[in-house]
């Protein structure tokens, strides 16, 4: 057996020697294979992406000359001092985090019963279609959906009409921003929770019932531990996406300002890139803290 194997291998190597020899050499050198796999992606992600983030962080330490508008490449903490001391920035940061948290909470509240219905109540052959129904709007453009709400919430638009006349709806503003962001990111919350619940075997729920637990107890003791990582996974999307958004706010937010708007305004109209960079570190910091905090829960595996 061994000899035939060797002979056939030897015969093949006579035909395609270099490829086989390279392949065998690579097989012995796992480190080389790993390096070959990782070099390009790491160059891209570390050099292009982390490098850019590093440039961003460094440029947050620069300032802009008030008269000439030229960037002064002199490291100083002035930008951060301004952000920390100025009431406006503190208020905007708190508002942005509040909006992100509210959006996440609303999405979790809507998503939990929907995901539970999809995974555990609906008949198996309908499940696939329900997932498709949740997934399809993700492919409809972000702008289109924000725009749809702009039309819905317009003065005298369908929402006003439904509530009995112009001015009865929420109109454009902070409420509209939270509502529309929650609408936009809802599928990102439903899908991980559904995936988590789908992995939970029905027999486990039956066992819990057989052992005398009522529905509430089963939910608390069996379902909850399984879906917490899923909810956190979903919240990473809803939180992060809300935190950096400045488009929806412009479309339905009226005069509302979030961190994203301030960053955008400082790049565009104010032409103060260093200050924009300093402002942009706020969401980065919040997200990094959030990611590190939830890493232990196993949520990152659910993404």
């Amino acid at each position: 057996m061994t000899s035939t194997l060797q002979r056939s291998a030897g015969g093949a190597s006579a035909v395609r020697g270099p490829v086989r020899r390279l392949s065998a050499w690579l097989h012995r050198h796992a480190g080389v294979r790993l390096a070959a796999l990782l070099t390009a992606p790491l160059l891209w992600l570390v050099v292009a992406y982390l490098g850019s983030l590093a440039v961003l962080l460094v440029s947050a330490l620069w300032t802009v000359n008030g008269f000439t508008g030229a960037v002064v490449h002199q490291p100083t903490l002035d930008n951060f001092r301004t952000i920390l001391s100025d009431e406006v920035y503190r208020a905007v940061t708190l508002r942005s985090v509040g909006v992100a948290a509210a959006v996440t909470a609303i999405d979790a509240l809507i998503a939990l019963p929907m995901a539970f219905y999809m995974a555990k109540v609906a008949r198996p052959r309908y499940r696939r279609w329900l997932v498709v129904a949740i997934l399809t709007p993700l492919w409809a453009s972000y702008l289109v959906k924000a725009y749809a709400w702009r039309v819905l919430l317009a003065n005298g638009g369908p929402v006003d009409w439904l509530l009995g006349g112009p001015g009865n709806g929420p109109g454009y503003g902070l409420t509209a921003t939270v509502l529309v962001l929650a609408y936009l990111w809802l599928p990102y919350m439903i899908l991980p929770i559904y995936a988590g619940l789908e992995r939970l075997p029905d027999s486990l729920l039956e066992a819990s019932g057989d052992l005398g637990a009522r529905a509430g107890r089963t939910l608390r003791a069996v379902v909850l531990p399984v879906i917490v990582p899923s909810v956190i996974a979903g919240s990473i999307f809803t939180f992060s996406l809300s935190l950096g958004d400045y488009i929806t706010v412009q479309i339905v937010g009226g005069k509302t300002q979030l961190i994203g708007n301030l960053v955008y305004a400082n790049i565009g109209a104010a032409n103060n890139l260093p200050f924009a960079a300093a402002l942009a570190t706020i969401p980065v910091l919040i997200m990094v803290i959030y990611l590190v905090a939830v890493r232990r829960s196993g949520a990152l595996e659910e993404l």
Binding site: Y49, S52, L53, V55, L56, I236, S240, L241, L243, G244, D245, Y246, G260, V263, Y264, I267, L273, A276, A277, A280, P283, V284, M287, L291
Partner: peptide
Amino acid sequence: ALPGIVTGIA
């Protein structure tokens, strides 16, 4: 995971 505006301006 980071907000798009951060990736964008970086």
